[in-house]
Design a protein around this nucleic acid. Structure first.
Lengths: 145, 145
DNA sequence: GCAAATGGTTCGATTATCGAACTTAGTTCC
DNA sequence: GGAACTAAGTTCGATAATCGAACCATTTGC
C-alpha cells in the first residue's frame, strides 16, 4: 500500500491525519475513551487482526496519543493528554454519524453526561465574537508562527 | 487489504468512519471545503494516484458526501448538505493538529473568519445546561430510537 | 503445577495502493 | 477545421499493508 506520509505538510488537518487518520486508529481511540486499556479488549471489540492491532498500538504510542504502563508483565494502553484532546474529533464524528448514517428506528449508542444521563449538546463553530459560524463564512489562510 | 466493513455497527463513530474514515477521504473533503471541485485540482493538491482518487471520489459520491454535476462534458464534485456537515470534523482535526503536530516556529495554515480575518474560536463540548464538559464526564450509553 | 486464557509475533494469502502508461474527450490557437 | 495540448478517467504490473490463522511466551485460575 505504501502509505503516503503527510508529516511535512503545512496543513494541520493533514498532519493530524498522518498521526491518527488510518482505518483503525480512531476506533482504538474511541475504545480507549470508553475505558479499554488492554490488548485483548481492543482486539475483541474491534475484531481486528492481532498483528495489525499491535502495529497500530505501537504507532499510536510512537506519536504520543497512547502511552503504555507495565502491569503485571503485560502492558496497559492509556490515552495521554495529547490523546485525550482528540475527544472533540471523536464527538464530531459521532454526531455526524448519528445524523447521517442511521435509518429511522435503528438502534444506536449515544453519548451522555455521566452524572445526569442527559445527552450532550451539539458542537458548534463560533466566530471570535461568539456568533455561530457557517462553513462558508470561513477561509483558510496561510500564516507563519 | 480487504477493508473491514463497519456499516452494520451500532456505534455512530464506526459508521462515520465507514463512510469517510479512509486515508484520503478527509483530505478530499478538506479540499472541497477550500473550494476545489475538479478531478485535476484534487489530484494536484493531494499528489494522489489517479486511480485511487477516482475510487475515492466514487465512494464519496456513493455515500452522499459529494455529488457530481456535469460541466462541459466533465464532472464537478461538490459537497452535499451531508458533506458540508462534516465541517466540524475537519475543524476539530485541524485544531488538534495545530496544537499537537507542529514544532514551534513551523509554518502552518490557519482557519479564519472570512470577513474579519480573525481566527475562529476553539471548539468546546457543552453539557445540556451549557457547562463546558471534560471527556471523563461523559459516558456512552446504548439507546434505542 | 497444570490447564486455560491473555499478550504479542510471525507468515502465507489476499487486497488495496502506487505510479506510469494509455484512452477518450474537451480546449486552444492558428 | 485541424493539430497540439490539456484534463478526466481507466488499466495494469509492482509493491506494500491487511487479514487470518498458527505459533510461542507469560499469567491467571484452580
Amino acid at each position: 500500500m505504501k502509505r503516503t506520509r503527510l508529516e511535512e505538510e503545512e496543513c494541520p488537518v493533514a498532519r493530524a491525519l498522518d498521526a491518527i487518520g488510518d482505518w483503525w486508529s480512531l476506533l482504538i481511540i474511541r475504545d480507549a475513551f470508553d475505558g479499554m486499556t488492554r490488548f485483548g479488549q481492543f482486539q475483541k471489540s474491534l475484531d481486528i487482526s492481532r498483528g495489525i492491532l499491535a502495529t497500530r498500538l505501537k504507532h499510536l504510542v510512537s506519536v504520543g496519543v497512547l502511552a503504555t504502563t507495565p502491569v503485571g508483565g503485560f502492558k496497559e494502553y492509556r490515552l495521554t493528554e495529547k490523546g485525550r484532546k482528540l475527544f472533540l474529533v471523536v464527538v464530531s464524528l459521532r454526531q455526524w454519524g448519528e445524523d447521517h448514517c442511521f435509518r429511522k428506528g435503528e438502534k444506536r449508542s449515544a453519548l451522555v453526561e455521566t452524572g445526569s444521563g442527559r445527552p450532550i449538546r451539539r458542537l458548534e463553530l463560533h466566530a471570535h465574537d461568539g456568533d455561530v459560524l457557517a462553513p462558508d463564512a470561513t477561509t483558510v489562510r496561510k500564516v507563519a508562527e
